[in-house]
Nucleic acid binder design. Structure first.
Ligand code: SF4
Ligand code: SF4
Lengths: 146, 146
DNA sequence: TTTTAATCAGACAATTTTATCTGATTATAT
DNA sequence: ATATAATCAGATAAAATTGTCTGATTAAAA
């Protein structure tokens, strides 16, 4: 069972948070990101490539190349990453898996689940990455200690 | 991307809701359930078997056999099905996929996500299946019309 | 200019999830 | 008794997700 988002999306959010938490104008190599977040190097590399294609991050090739944010952290929200990787479909679908999710044909938990999806969307779309910076740094620090 | 629960779990919830919405003491064959919910017959059959092993439903073999609830609908909640199939792990894990999910090492969306998980748990554990019966019947009816 | 260290692209492999098949067993109805 | 219609169990297949490998390209540094 996945918790709402795919591994790709989870890793993507982690990596972009990581980039946002580091000094601007300095890139991080996929190897650094891999070690910091304990994500398989080649896998995060692929994910970062696709995020680059979406325009969320940029990359520089060659020696001392790497990845960095394409915009200022204050211009990016977690929902942007979700949209780029998993899409926004989940915010329009039913927790019980019924097709045709709409108020006209409510599923048995329609009201509660509708409210929840809204809350989840807000969670990902209100705060910007710079606002999440401190907590991100704390979290990453604990990852290293294992 | 899955929306919180696996297909198995979604189908399981649908099927048990379906059983709860039908007359008590009458069983439904996997074929009936399959057609009513538009779920592959062999697949829902497997899922029902495992729910039978969990003691949530019962089955009778042979001609005119089928599946029925092991308890009264007023004694079953959706969370019971989730627990039997996907487990309750998601209610203790991080939406960003960080390991070591705990208040000591909060992820950047700790507070909002914690509240959300609680809400989701409540959604699945407050109402009993008989309370969801009417909405279930409406939803299933619309499935037939396609 | 050569070595080195990085991204990039695409193929490939492993794993997990989802779905199907087959044959045995069971019980009802003819 | 026999045919029928269902569950059951286990193997298998297909699809999706997750993860790895290889070789080409790029650019910095020696
Ligand atoms: S409650 Fe209604 S709108 Fe919400 S997920 Fe279920 S069917 Fe869709
Ligand atoms: S917010 Fe904290 S407790 Fe909640 S999921 Fe993230 S790490 Fe876990």
């Amino acid at each position: 069972m996945t918790v709402i988002f795919s591994k790709k999306c989870e890793y993507g959010m982690q990596a972009v948070l990581y980039l946002a938490a580091n000094n601007k104008d300095t890139t991080k190599s996929s190897d650094q990101i891999s070690r910091a977040l304990k994500i398989p190097k080649e896998f995060i590399s692929k994910i970062l490539q696709s995020l680059r294609n979406s325009g969320l991050i940029f990359s520089t090739k060659g020696k001392s190349g790497g990845f960095g944010l394409a915009k200022d952290p204050s211009q990016i929200k977690l929902i942007d990453i979700v949209q780029a990787i998993d899409g926004l479909e989940m915010f329009n679908s039913c927790v019980l898996g019924f097709p045709e999710c709409s108020p006209d044909t409510p599923c048995p938990v329609h009201d509660s689940w509708g409210a929840l999806r809204t809350k989840a969307f807000e969670m990902l779309s209100t705060e910007t990455l710079d606002q999440l910076k401190d907590k991100t740094l704390t979290k990453i620090k604990t990852l290293q200690q294992e």
